[in-house]
Design a protein around this nucleic acid. Structure first.
Lengths: 127, 127, 127, 127
DNA sequence: GTGGTCTAGACCACA
DNA sequence: GTGGTCTAGACCACA
């Protein structure tokens, strides 16, 4: 499993790891029951302090994404009503909402924002 | 002029102030040539250390939003291509792009995202 | 007499005025015996605090460029051995020296700097 | 690493430090990837407040000279077009240009200035 | 009156 | 260990 971290980005390494793992779980690239790499193996590979990876895993455990299996490692949690697409949707909807709020604070109208979104989507979709 | 700060939010106060001022300048609520409140007046009002506000102003100066007028205070900069709507647009477009990228990392398709955006916009527009 | 000041440049206004007047005296544009405009007339014209201009004049007086004539104003001083070209030269030589020092701190050699100077001079001379 | 500061020079300490570090980076004495001394170690050595050094580092970071590596310190940035000699040259050329401009405001001709430069260079080169 | 600089010292996140 | 943020309070230059 590959991870990309940028120690100088300002974003804490443990958060960078968190986000990459969360995305893989939410998108189904990591599926329930699967084991994630050990803290040590990742720490060695990325040349990072093991405590940092440990912090990432603890956070993922706390939020229900991972389950600690004693003596074996961390496993992707089997979540009840595990509607992946629903999780995803909530995450994206929240971001759209905050984008709307911000655009309004900047004095942009809803129709203007809508037009902008459609423009950018069209451009990206064409890639 | 009113500001809202939340000392317990984790976001540094000087950054909170920065964002509020940047938004007001970009949205034209503060227009070129206008003087912003003095460091001391804001510090007193918000019960915050003057150096904290000073840091905000230095940042805004460094980025070209404010101009220091010695002995008189800080003034909103007259920017050459002061096409406010253009600044705003760039800021929002960048955020839409990163939202698209993220949704794709989560395994969502462009049409799905588009539908979601339209739904949320419709809901917000109706408020 | 015209002056150009930029209140937002960071350079104190009294220094900006000082430099402009010093240059005019050193270059002979203002000659000995001539009266400079009154503090008030400049202050009004430039929309500047009279104390600021006063500070400029005091500095020029202190350094022997101006002489206070009671009831009449400030006069360009008649300086003994008033070799304008010599003053000028000292001023420029000092700056060339500090340029050499700086270029060496940056790891540039004397021949490199010499070449650079000749290049820039050739370019400017052709204008 | 040694630094020289003069608290009584009028130039803010954080600026004095900035200039010394900028020069060492531009001259290649500090090379990309290298870690600069910690805020605290410099502060202790120079008997100066850590915040003062921190301000220097923030400025160097903002301008792209240093990169903050969380929990580890500040590292000299790897810059894309890291043509050190080019950076240096621009800095010096800008100063030569402004020297030419100034000499002309003082009524000196280009040939006179050229002669003066050659004289001073010859004297310095002989040291 | 304005903002800038600095100290001494505290507490925090991150590794 | 690293740097970041903030306070309380002093002193300074400038207008």
């Amino acid at each position: 499993m590959n991870f990309t971290i940028s120690p100088s980005s300002g974003v804490p390494i443990y958060r960078q790891m968190y986000e990459q793992l969360e995305k893989r779980i939410l998108s189904g690239q990591l599926s329930a029951g699967e084991f994630v790499p050990s803290v040590r193996s990742i720490a060695t590979k990325l040349q990072v302090n093991p405590m940092t990876i440990s912090k990432t895993y603890s956070l993922l455990e706390e939020r229900g994404y991972l389950v600690r299996v004693r003596g074996k490692g961390m496993q992707v949690a089997v979540r009840e009503n595990h509607d992946v697409s629903n999780d995803r949707q909530k995450l994206i909807v929240a971001q759209i909402s905050s984008l709307i709020e911000e655009s309004q604070q900047l004095g942009m109208t809803i129709p203007e924002l809508k037009q902008l979104m459609l423009d950018v989507l069209a451009k990206e979709g064409a890639k």
